[in-house]
Simulated scan of single mutants.
Amino acid sequence: MFRFEEPAYLYLLLLLPLSILFYLFSNYIRKNRIKKIGDPELIGLLMPDVSNYRPEIKSGLILICISLFSFLLARPQFGSKLENIKRKGVEIMIAVDISNSMLATDLQPSRIEKAKRLVARLVDKLENDKVGMIVFAGDAFTQLPITSDYISAKMFLESINPSLINKQGTAIGAAINLASRSFTPQEGVGKAIIIITDGENHEGGVTNAVKEAVDKGIQVHVLGVGSANGAPIPQDGTNDFRRDSEGNVIVTRLNEEMCKEIAKAGNGVYVRVDNTNSAEKTINDEIAKMAKIDINSKIYTEFDEQFQAIAWIILFLLFTEMMILDKKNVFFKKIRLFSK
C-alpha cells in the first residue's frame, strides 16, 4: 500500500512549468544580447571551448531536482504488511431501516439522513471496537461485514438509501437474525445490535429473533426515528407525496411501543432520536458498559518512509550539476587532438 503523508506538498510541482518558462525566456534574452554584440556564429568561433548543450543539461538537472524535492516533502510511504493486532474492544452490528417511510421529513433533513448522521457520529466515538452494518426493508442484507476499518464503515454509510432494497416493508426480525450471525465466534467479548428504525409495517418474527440473540449473549438496542404525529412520504422526482390505492396521502408514524418492546426483550435500551444528541449519548454510555476483551484486528502497519532514497537522488543530481562545466572538457579535447 502506497501513500503520501503530506500530499499538499505535491502542489509544488506547479512550479515546474513556471521554471521551464523562466528558463526559455532567459535563454531568449541571452541570445538577443549575443546578437547585439555581433554575429552568433562568429562569436561561437571566438569561444571554441564554450559548450552549447551543457548549460541545457545543467538546467534540466535543476528542474528534475525541483520535481523530486516536492515528492520528498510529500513524504512517500509504503505499508509493508497486514498485521494481526489485539486491542480491547467490543463488537457492534448496526441495522438501519431503509424502507420508503424513512424518507419522511418529520426529522430534518429526513429520517434516513438523520439516522446516517447519527451512525457516523457513533462510529467516530468507537475506539478499538469492531463495527458492521446491515440495511433492511422488506428484506435484510449485509452492507458492511464486521470490521475495525472505520473509514470503510463511513464510506459504505454514505451509499445507504432506500433504492438498495426493492422489497418494501420493515423486516426487523430478519435484520436481527442476520446481525446475530455476523459477529465473530470469539467468546467473552461484548456484542450488541443497534436497530435504527421507525418501526412501521412490522413483518413478524421479531420475538424469536430477539430471544435467539439474547441466548447468544447479544444485547439489542433500538433507536426510534420519527414522531408520533407522523409525516407524509415524499414521492421521488415530484413535489407530491406517496398515496395509497384510494388516493389518500400516506402518513407514516413512529411505532414507539413496538420499539420499546424489542429493546426490553433484548436486554437493551430504547431511545427516540430527536434533534438533540441524547440518543447518541445514551448508546455511547451503553457501549461503554459492555465487556471489553482483547479482540483480533487486521491493519496495515509499518508505513515506511521512502524520502531518504529521493534525498540521495537529489544530492547526486546536484553534485552532477556542479561538476558539469559550461566549457567543453579539455581532457577529451586533448585526446581528440592526440588521436589525429
Rank of each mutant, 00 (worst) to 15 (best):
M1F: 05
F2T: 02
E5R: 03
L13W: 08
L13M: 10
S26P: 03
Y28R: 12
I34G: 03
K35Q: 12
K36G: 01
I37A: 08
L45G: 04
L46M: 15
V50Y: 08
R54Y: 09
I57H: 05
S59G: 04
C65S: 12
S67R: 03
K81A: 13
E83I: 12
I85H: 06
G89F: 00
E91I: 04
E91P: 01
E91A: 06
I98N: 02
M102T: 06
L103R: 13
T105G: 00
Q108L: 14
S110Q: 05
R111I: 00
A115K: 01
R117Q: 14
V119L: 07
K130Q: 14
G132N: 10
I134F: 08
T142L: 13
I151C: 02
F156K: 06
G169D: 01
I172K: 00
I172G: 02
A174L: 02
I176E: 07
S182T: 06
V189D: 03
I193W: 01
I194Y: 05
D198E: 10
V206Y: 00
N208I: 13
A209K: 03
V210M: 11
E212K: 15
A213T: 07
V214T: 14
Q219A: 09
H221Y: 15
L223M: 15
I233N: 06
R243W: 00
E246G: 05
N248T: 02
E256P: 04
E261Y: 02
V271K: 13
T276L: 10
S278V: 13
T282V: 15
I283T: 10
D294E: 15
I295N: 08
K298V: 14
I299H: 08
T301K: 15
T301D: 13
L315P: 05
L318P: 11
M323Q: 13
I324S: 10
I324R: 08
D326K: 13
N329F: 07
K333F: 09
F338C: 07
